[in-house]
């Protein structure tokens, strides 16, 4: 039998990682919900954000949490521009094309990063990186707890934005019925780009929360992008609650899978969940769209 003293920290660590996954997945699910596209560039945009946080810290000494106010708006703008300038113009109204275009964007961003910054693994030094709190049976990393809490705060803000603001109402209208939204005078192209921008801002926020305890390389996005897809598919494409719960679940699966099966095989656990959900319940746990 497995000791509780091993299992409990694994569960808590899984949940903390899962919260960051949830944050990344929130952006992806928003983009999917509104534009009905799967954004393959999501991981590359996360990587770009991580580099942004990294350089702000290294070159200007800006704390990653302070960097939120710079990186989040910057990535929002980039996301807006990508959708408006490239994706919308290239899709010719076909979903397969959008899929391919975002793949193309991912290739460009990732490989330019590789060209300019090489594949070295980079980390930043912050004084609180190794701070822990004692919760009795184990120690928990403070920056990861912060990330855990912040993920919920961002999710809450997103929920407020969607339910309480005109922009949120317009986004929901476009997500539900884009023709109808156009008819009542909503600038659908603008809403598409806003959604893409907000989705990208989510990964920017995740990057700021991640970097104190994580690293960045040009390929780092790949590790997250499939996980984010899994979370979104598990939670139900387009569902916010689903992304949150799905993120936490996947964090758990990864952490416990790693514990029982070892690092590499633990990753398989995630993909098997992914494949199983796609096959047996493509609408996910919280999705109702067929």
């Amino acid at each position: 039998m497995l000791q509780l003293s091993i299992l409990a920290p694994a569960v808590l660590n899984g949940l903390m990682t899962g919260a960051v996954y949830a944050l990344i997945a929130l952006g992806l699910t928003l983009i999917y919900g509104v534009l009905h596209i799967i954004n393959f560039a999501h991981g590359a945009l996360l990587m770009l954000s991580l580099f942004g946080v990294y350089f702000l810290n290294r070159l200007a000494g800006i704390d990653p949490y302070v960097a939120l106010v710079i990186v989040v708006p910057a990535m929002f703008a980039l996301g807006y521009a990508l959708q408006r300038g490239i994706i919308a113009r290239t899709s010719h109204g076909k979903d397969e094309n959008v899929l391919l275009v975002t793949l193309g964007i991912a290739l460009i961003i990732e490989n330019l990063a590789l060209f300019f910054w090489r594949s070295d693994t980079r980390t930043i030094d912050v004084p609180y990186a190794f701070d822990v709190v004692d919760v009795g049976f184990t120690f928990l990393s403070v920056p990861r707890l912060v990330a855990f809490g912040a993920a919920f705060v961002v999710a809450g803000l997103l929920w407020l934005l969607m339910s309480r603001t005109d922009l949120g109402r317009a986004i929901r209208a476009v997500a539900k019925e884009r023709q109808g939204a156009r008819v009542v005078g909503i600038d659908v192209e603008h809403i598409f780009a806003m959604s893409f921008g907000i989705g990208t801002a989510c990964v920017a926020a995740a990057a700021c929360l991640l970097l104190p305890t994580f690293y960045v390389t040009p390929q780092v996005g790949n590790a997250f992008v499939l996980i984010a897809f899994t979370v979104v598919v598990l939670g139900g494409m387009g569902s916010f609650t689903g992304a949150l719960v799905g993120g936490l679940l996947i964090g758990l699966v990864e952490s416990l899978g790693g514990l029982f099966l070892g690092e590499t095989l633990g990753q398989i656990g995630i993909f098997l969940v992914f494949i199983a959900v796609l096959l047996f319940r493509p609408t996910g746990l919280f999705g109702d769209r067929t």
Binding site: I105, L107, I108
Partner: peptide, 8 residues
């Protein structure tokens, strides 16, 4: 990387 960026 440059060639893959070009592919994209």
């Amino acid at each position: 990387g440059l060639n893959l960026a070009l592919y994209g």
